[in-house]
Design a protein around this nucleic acid. Structure first.
Lengths: 212, 212
DNA sequence: TTTCTTAATAGGAATTTTCCCCTTTTTTGA
DNA sequence: TCAAAAAAGGGGAAAATTCCTATTAAGAAA
């Protein structure tokens, strides 16, 4: 009987998964948490670790990626399986880099959930075809996936760039000269490989700097 | 014992909700569907209708909004409760206009799920504070919520506008003169109240014309 | 304290975007 | 079948964006 912990802020979902996992002969849910922070503090104060953590990617407080990083570092024996509504390439890569041993979509079939759990116990990981493709592709590309580090002020600027304000107006809002703003713009174009302002907007949205 | 049908393409979630609903004394899940189309055909071939449908908003094939419209028209006795991960104002309004009698978030507490179900049975509807606010606000604004109707070619253009292509390049791609493209741009600015290209991008994303 | 990096600021100019007013052709629907 | 709507195209100009190359101020590191 392998123990499983579920981390997801959607109560309905985590209750649902718990029910399903408990219905599998080989597995049993110890408890559920609603974010990464909660999981970490529960683990700290508990004696026996779960074999598997089913981890939602998008959570408040401490998200799945950061939580997985912390978890695999502190408790290498725990196998994290990511659970997400979407399989955006960047997200998948980030989760795998963080140490996830599998990646499931929330519209997964029950049989797939079961077999993935079994595989992860047996071989330590399980990546389906789609995830495996992303993985090999990202390796081949020597995809260094180092999300550019933006400075405070640049971050502030890029948010404004996602509005319909003119650079002149942004300069006013930030109490800077339009020329300084132009400097930010130019730097960011380079850093983010953007060809124009739309490029900044898309980057900001993809990296959740800005949410439309 | 009131009968409930769950419509959601995320199997884990619908299983989960089913379990919870079944645990309530007053309710019982008849069956679950994974999209609107499936629900409609199941209803067509069944004799007794459910009292309540718990309807996911984002589904493939036939989404929650369209499905709810069809449902409330064909079977006015069925009370639809919307179920969504997010409470975007536009989405909430669209669902309510479509005829939803309640709007729940997927991170709802179990007790709230229960009480909402009971309220909807008792009074025919239940809107929590947040949803009620949106509702009154949209009424006050005389918010006619007529999402602009875009022509085929405009739609094609706006997708390109969400890329880093210049208008000249878009014109090439669409085999049109830059001047024609400029016409599209100008029309769309008016129609969508956009001040610049970023406005188009934001509109496209919000209305799922384009997904980053 | 001196050095080195980063932030802030410019000038000047090329390109692109945006605006306003207008014509012709094609498609469509009543 | 005939008018209306949609689609395509255009001239010219103002405004905004983008690019290039410098200079100065401020802060961190040595």
């Amino acid at each position: 009987m392998y123990s499983v912990v579920i981390v997801d802020n959607h109560v309905l979902l985590s209750q649902g998964i718990a029910g399903l996992v408990n219905s599998f002969d080989e597995f049993q849910v110890n408890y559920t948490c609603s974010n990464g922070r909660e999981l970490l503090s529960k683990l700290e104060s508990s004696l026996d670790l779960p074999e598997i953590v089913l981890m939602d990617v998008n959570m408040p407080i401490l998200n799945g990626i950061e939580a997985t990083k912390a978890l695999t570092k502190l408790y290498p024996s725990i196998r994290v399986i990511a659970l997400s509504i979407e399989a955006k390439e960047d997200t998948v890569i980030a989760m795998l880099k963080a140490g996830a041993k599998g990646y499931l979509l929330k519209d997964v079939k029950i049989s797939t959930l079961h077999s993935t759990l079994l595989e992860v116990i047996k071989h330590g990981f399980y990546y389906d075809q789609y995830v495996a493709n992303i993985l090999t592709k990202s390796l081949k590309d020597d995809n260094q996936y180092t999300p550019a580090i933006l400075k405070k002020r640049e971050l502030e600027f890029i948010k404004y760039a996602c509005s319909e304000l003119t650079y002149k107006e942004i300069a006013d809002k930030m109490y800077l000269s339009p020329k300084t703003i132009d400097g930010y713009r130019s730097n960011l174009f380079q850093k983010l490989h953007a060809k124009n302002r739309v490029g900044l907007v898309l980057y900001a949205i993809k990296n959740k700097i800005f949410t439309p």
